Amino acid sequence: MPDFCAAYGCCNHRCLETRTRGITFHLFPKSRERRRKWEVALRRDGFAATDRTLICSEHFKTEDFDRTGQTVRIKDGVVPSIFSFPAYLQRSVAIRSTTTSRQLEDNLPMDLMPDAIKAKLQQALVRQRKLQREKSNALRREKRAKNNMQALLEELKEKNLINEELKDRLECYSDLPVHLLSRQGVEYTKAQRDFALTLHLHGPKAYNYLRETLHIHLPHPSSMQRYSI
């Protein structure tokens, strides 16, 4: 069974294609403290690495590697830092928190300020509230999109149609719509084909359940013979 990268949204796994692209795979540190730093960097809820958990080289900077020997190694103290997180997992630009803004409004003697400064402060507070609302709305949208796929995987796990290992492997496709195609006749994307092939190879019962019971528009098994991961 291929080894997959544990990073959020990454579908890289050990195969001829990734080897040709120069992608290397690295085990999580054995040190509990260093391993915890890597786990936190991935920002996956409830995620805990095992002694076989891997992360690929695409999540490290060029200077993070030691290439002096025959084996490419990660330098001591390095933490993976290159990811493509959805909006709700990205760290926001440092701005005043809502609490701080309220304190600022409550504590500043507004009546003693010049009108120009007062107007600028009011405008800044309005902009800050708007950014907070936009951030909250984006977070809710992203959570709904992710929870739909997460709920689907959880359902398959609860019905014993997939095991925990396969569930973790399929989480890298969590940004795909639950219904892979909105209408028939549209060509599958590579990510959609990889998802379908991975599930069919390692969880055929789950594949049939999605296709026949939930009526999710997955490729017919006979058509996947021309796909390859």
Rank of each mutant, 00 (worst) to 15 (best):
A7H: 08
C11E: 06
L16Y: 12
R21F: 02
R21W: 04
G22N: 01
T24Q: 02
F25K: 06
L27R: 15
R32I: 03
E33A: 02
R34P: 01
R35W: 03
V40D: 15
R43W: 05
R44C: 05
R52F: 06
I55Q: 05
I55R: 04
I55V: 12
H59P: 06
T62G: 14
F65R: 00
T68V: 03
G69C: 11
T71I: 08
R73L: 15
I74S: 13
V78P: 06
Q90Y: 12
R91S: 15
S92E: 13
V93H: 06
A94G: 08
T100N: 14
Q103E: 12
Q103C: 13
L104Y: 11
K120C: 15
L121D: 08
Q123T: 11
Q123A: 14
Q123W: 12
A124T: 13
V126I: 12
R129I: 04
K130F: 10
L131A: 07
Q132F: 03
Q132Y: 15
N137W: 07
L139E: 11
R141H: 04
K143Q: 10
R144C: 01
A151T: 02
A151Y: 00
A151K: 04
K157E: 15
K159C: 06
E165Y: 14
L166Q: 08
K167I: 09
D168M: 10
D168C: 10
R169K: 07
L181A: 14
Q184T: 13
E187P: 08
K190V: 04
F195N: 01
L197Y: 05
Y209F: 01
E212S: 00
P219M: 03
P219E: 01
S223Q: 03
M224R: 07
R226F: 06
Y227A: 09
S228F: 05
S228D: 13
